[in-house]
């Protein structure tokens, strides 16, 4: 490991594999994430993108492979609290991650109580600060989760995740359920937070247009494997793998031919069957910008 002031990756995933019985959900997935960077993971349902995200935050134990957070392996019994300080996750439906009987402010306070023991007054000041940071006032803080709109709940979830000042935020379809005008508000907030705090993002999503706007680098996953990895703009403009092309052709646009993805898919399936070797322009690059 390089010492001194050299910038090191805040997250390194190496050869992650996850099997459920005989089914391989994730196979040989690896990447590095530098501080303040934003990495997208895209693919269809069943591609392994959510399982990968869950492994990163420790909700799922990989069958093999390692996750290194801020220079230290994230594993073992005593490592849970450290991991929670470094990496936090935001889900599509924040309603499921809040205690419905607790005020939003209290839910945001909980990680503070756990990680930073100290006077309650300090904590309350910090909660107000956090809520304000994501655009929520004392009125929203005092409300129950069900009394907030979807966008406000997602803001509250972000405030709670930021409470421990994590180095990495994993966002799993975090804006997928929001109306487009509200989605844009949350995307702007995420961009602002990344700029101000240097938190790195892993953004899991199916919406390529959203991924284009919030990430610098993207992994395209198919059937548990990374089929393409590169600079987001490059991958979306000039996809190397036929599966990435299939995903792009599926996005409606003026003059769109909805029959084309089906043809892409048949070409891709034909490609899958006979050849045992890798290749077909698969981008095996495990690039790190460090």
């Amino acid at each position: 490991m390089s010492g001194g002031d050299a910038i090191r990756p805040v997250l390194t995933a190496t050869a992650l594999t996850k099997r459920f019985g005989s089914f391989t959900a994730v196979e040989d997935v690896g990447f590095t994430l530098m501080p303040g960077a934003s990495l997208g993971i895209v693919g269809e349902s069943g591609s392994g993108k959510t399982t990968t995200a869950r492994i990163l935050v420790g909700l799922e134990r990989p069958t093999s492979g390692t996750v290194v957070l801020d220079g230290e392996p994230a594993a073992g019994g005593g490592a849970r609290r450290r991991r929670a300080r470094l990496i936090q996750m935001i889900f599509q439906d924040p309603y499921g991650s809040f205690d419905p009987r607790q005020s939003v402010a209290r839910s945001v306070e909980e990680p503070l109580r756990l990680h930073f023991p100290g006077p309650a007054a300090d904590r309350h000041r910090r909660v107000a600060e956090l809520l304000d940071r994501v655009g929520l006032g004392p009125r929203e803080g005092a409300a129950l989760p069900r009394d907030l709109s979807g966008g406000q709940r997602q803001r509250a979830a972000i405030a709670r995740a930021l409470a421990v000042e994590p180095r990495v935020l994993v966002l799993d379809e975090a804006v997928a359920a929001l109306d487009v005008s509200v989605q844009a508000q949350i995307l702007a907030l995420l961009e602002e937070l990344r700029r101000d705090t240097g938190t790195a993002y892993v953004f899991v999503g199916h919406d390529l247009a959203v991924v284009r706007h919030v990430t610098d680098e993207v992994l395209v996953m198919r059937r548990g494997r990374v089929v393409e990895h590169g600079d987001t703009e490059r991958v979306l403009r000039d996809p190397h793998h036929p599966y990435t092309r299939l995903l792009l052709d599926s996005v409606p646009s003026p003059g769109w031919d909805p029959g084309r993805p089906a043809r892409d898919r048949r070409a891709l399936d034909a490609l899958d069957t006979p050849t045992p070797t890798t290749g077909h322009g698969e981008d095996q690059c495990r690039s790190s910008n460090g």
């Binding site: 709109s149 966008g151 109306d179 487009v180 005008s181 509200v182 989605q183 844009a184 508000q185 995307l187 702007a188 961009e191 919406d207 390529l208 247009a209 959203v210 284009r212 706007h213 703009e233 979306l236 792009l248 996005v251 646009s253």
Partner: peptide
Amino acid sequence: RALVAASPSLHGDRGAPVPVAGRP
């Protein structure tokens, strides 16, 4: 116009989606 401006696009310039104040 607000909806169009708020929608991220896959093509063209990578202009950031413009939020609409308030909620639907």
